[in-house]
Amino acid sequence: MIEPEPFRIYLMRHAQAASAVPGGRDFDRVLDERGYAQAEMVADRAADLGYVPDRLISSTAERCRQTAEIVRRAVRETLEITFVDELYNGTPDLYATIIAGQRPARSVMLIGHNPSIDLLLEGLIGKAERRAAMPGGYPTAGLAVLDYGAQADSGGWTLTNLLSI
């Protein structure tokens, strides 16, 4: 699915969004008050732990844009955000292809949507480990940190950390 480069992947689900307004598009939903708080807390924790990606890629949906901007401000003001339209309704395979195309970056953060982000994580670390880490499903503003071959006996991706509120 994804080769060993980049060696670290950050998979983040957008923070909690407000309900759709009558006649409005799902794509245009913005973060609600709780969502802003979630994104800020997770981004601040990521920065404190030194989780700073070389590249930040986000869906163009408004709630993802807002989440990405909060992350950028927390981890590194000069971090450029690449917005990709296809992530909005993209499949887990598309998410993986976009991440794999970021070479020679050594770390990539992708901010996207469920169920694709959850299914990608499951595909990288396995169903049992994903369910053990997130028994209630992928939380809003959840940030999974994955390293390639992080354990001596590992031949693939390992969930190194999970940040969520």
Rank of each mutant, 00 (worst) to 15 (best):
Y10D: 00
Y10G: 04
Y10K: 00
Y10Q: 01
L11I: 12
L11W: 01
L11F: 00
L11T: 01
M12F: 00
M12D: 00
M12P: 01
M12N: 00
M12G: 00
R13Q: 05
R13F: 04
R13H: 01
R13D: 01
R13Y: 01
H14A: 07
H14P: 07
H14D: 04
H14M: 06
A15Q: 04
Q16W: 01
Q16R: 14
A17P: 03
A17Q: 02
A17D: 00
A18I: 04
A18D: 10
A18G: 10
S19D: 10
S19L: 10
S19H: 09
S19R: 09
S19Q: 08
A20F: 02
A20P: 10
A20N: 11
V21M: 14
V21C: 10
V21H: 13
V21Y: 10
P22E: 15
P22G: 11
G23A: 13
G23V: 14
G23H: 14
G23I: 13
G23E: 11
G24Q: 14
G24C: 11
G24W: 14
G24N: 06
R25L: 15
R25K: 15
R25E: 15
R25M: 15
R25V: 09
D26M: 09
D26P: 07
D26Y: 10
D26N: 15
F27G: 08
F27Y: 15
F27V: 06
F27C: 05
D28F: 12
D28G: 13
D28R: 07
R29K: 09
R29P: 11
R29N: 05
V30D: 15
V30C: 13
V30L: 10
L31G: 05
L31D: 04
L31C: 11
L31K: 03
D32S: 08
D32C: 12
D32M: 08
E33C: 07
E33S: 13
E33P: 06
E33H: 11
E33Q: 13
E33A: 14
E33R: 14
R34P: 04
R34T: 15
R34C: 09
R34G: 15
R34W: 05
G35D: 04
G35R: 03
G35P: 08
G35C: 12
G35A: 10
G35M: 09
G35Y: 05
Y36G: 10
A37N: 08
A37V: 13
Q38A: 10
Q38W: 05
Q38L: 09
A39F: 06
A39N: 03
A39T: 05
E40M: 08
E40V: 09
E40G: 12
E40W: 05
E40L: 09
V42Q: 03
V42T: 06
V42L: 04
V42K: 02
V42E: 01
V42S: 00
A43H: 02
A43V: 03
A43N: 02
A43Q: 04
D44R: 15
D44L: 10
D44I: 09
R45V: 06
R45I: 05
R45C: 08
A46L: 04
A46D: 01
A46V: 05
A46C: 07
A46I: 06
A47C: 08
A47F: 03
D48T: 12
D48E: 14
D48F: 09
D48W: 08
D48S: 13
L49K: 15
L49P: 04
L49I: 06
G50W: 08
Y51N: 06
Y51D: 05
Y51K: 06
Y51E: 06
V52P: 02
V52Q: 02
V52E: 01
P53S: 03
P53L: 02
P53A: 06
